[in-house]
Nucleic acid binder design. Structure first.
Length: 110
DNA sequence: AAACTGACGAAAA
DNA sequence: ATTTTCGCCAGTT
């Protein structure tokens, strides 16, 4: 069985997010090929948030809002990680989002 | 087996 | 422009 699992695909993409960058669920979903399954992307991250290989803290919604911060062990953990990478977070949302946004397809050249 | 849920997103009102 | 509703798909109950 090939690792064509939805989750695995998501992990691969998120894992490729460069330092100091963020991406959106929809972009990842699109990179996978399931553009309409943006929800599934976040859903898949549920198990990913505990994996160091999957920097879920670099994944935010299309709004640049740290939607998943509530799912992290620490309430402030996600924000701290982002700020630690040079990303400024204001009111649980990424500032200069467009500048730090990273398109998975841009690197994976789908 | 059916219904509900959910880190989203886009369209409709 | 803002608020509301629907769709998506897989996992859980």
């Amino acid at each position: 069985m090939l690792e064509n699992n939805f989750y695995h695909k998501v992990y691969e993409i998120v894992r490729q997010i460069p330092y100091g960058r963020v991406t959106s669920y929809g972009a990842i979903a699109k990179a996978i090929g399931a553009a309409k399954s943006a929800r599934m992307v976040g859903y898949a991250m549920n198990g990913a948030s505990t994996l160091e290989d999957v920097p879920a803290h670099r994944v935010v919604n299309r709004n640049g809002l740290l939607t998943g911060k509530h799912h992290f062990p620490g309430t402030q953990l996600m924000r701290q990680l982002l700020e630690g990478e040079g990303i400024r977070v204001k009111d649980d949302k990424v500032e200069n989002f467009a500048a730090v946004f990273w398109d998975p397809m841009s690197n994976a050249k789908k």
